[in-house]
Design a binder for these strands. Structure first.
Length: 273
DNA sequence: ATAGGCCTGACG
DNA sequence: CGTCAGGCCTAT
């Protein structure tokens, strides 16, 4: 799915297009994607609203609307957004259509339908569990090594902890693996065995990997595309994710893969201790 | 902590 | 046919 860098790429494109436009109407084809309130009320609340800034929290997109409402969209594993001008035919797996005041439509497409969307009172995230309990933004200026250390308390495996959105917002399987490789930390290490130096390295790696991935407009493993339908550019620069049995770009050792926390984890046994 | 479930599609 | 996939929730 879109992780933080992919969602941020889409957010920037939305921010360049949408503010000032009005949502004239909204059509939901697959009601279970609308988590709050009911699909009917969701559409009724959106109709007539003017779009303000587009924000991001972790992997959630938040469209600020007038009337103190927020439109929240999570892209799940395979969700994508695109702007179209009254198409004769919608793409396969189009589930939601937002008609805009400039005649264009913002459409939500999602083959696996793991995404979700909601309309909330501005900044009241309580109806969405994932958003209500989300951890700190890793690229915020106040995300210091001390805050990272605080987020990584306990005895969990570091790989599982990085994937836990309540600890840190926005990391997924690709960037968790890339960050651990960059930091030289084995995904099986436990939190309570990380030294202050490890935390420092992790902090630096989180910043580097996320910023580089955003600059590369995200990674396309199979089907991620941005608002313009473009694939990302960072997949070519991934050092371990999806590269099992290839040589580590740092030391040449064969990259390994194992399952941790139910997810495939790619790492270099020589660089990551 | 781990497995299973939610879905569709690609690939072997 | 089976296995796997950028996520996340539940139940055990």
């Amino acid at each position: 799915m879109p992780e933080l860098p992919e969602v941020e790429t889409i957010r920037r494109q939305l921010q360049a297009e949408l503010p000032g436009l009005r949502i004239e109407k909204c059509k939901v084809g697959l009601g279970r994607l609308v988590t709050h309130p009911s699909p009917r009320t969701y559409c009724r609340n959106l109709a007539g609203r003017t779009i303000g800034n587009i924000c991001r929290r972790g992997k959630y997109l938040i469209f600020e609307l007038d009337n103190h409402l927020d439109l929240v969209i999570h892209l799940g594993m395979t969700g994508s957004l695109s702007l179209v001008e009254s198409p004769r035919e919608y793409p396969r797996h189009t589930h939601i259509v937002f008609g805009l005041s400039d005649g264009r439509q913002l459409i939500y497409v999602d083959p696996r339908t793991f995404g979700e969307t909601a309309v909330l009172e501005h900044a009241d995230y309580s109806p969405l569990r994932g958003l209500a309990s989300i951890g700190p933004e890793p690229l915020a200026t106040d995300f210091t090594p001390e805050r990272l250390a605080a987020a990584l308390k306990g005895t969990a495996l570091i790989k599982a902890a990085l994937l836990d959105q309540r600890r840190i917002a926005g990391l997924g399987n690709i960037y968790a693996d890339e960050i651990l490789h960059r930091a030289g930390i084995n995904p099986c290490r436990r939190l309570n065995e990380l030294s202050p130096v490890d935390i420092e390295r992790l902090h630096t790696s989180i910043h580097e990997v996320l910023n580089e991935a955003i600059n590369g407009r995200g990674s396309t493993i199979s089907d991620y595309v941005d608002l313009e339908g473009e694939k990302g550019g960072f997949q070519n620069l991934l050092r371990v994710y999806g590269r099992s049995d290839e040589g580590c770009p740092v030391c040449g050792e064969r990259i390994c893969m194992m399952r941790i926390a139910g997810r495939s984890s790619h790492y270099c046994p020589s660089c990551q201790k």
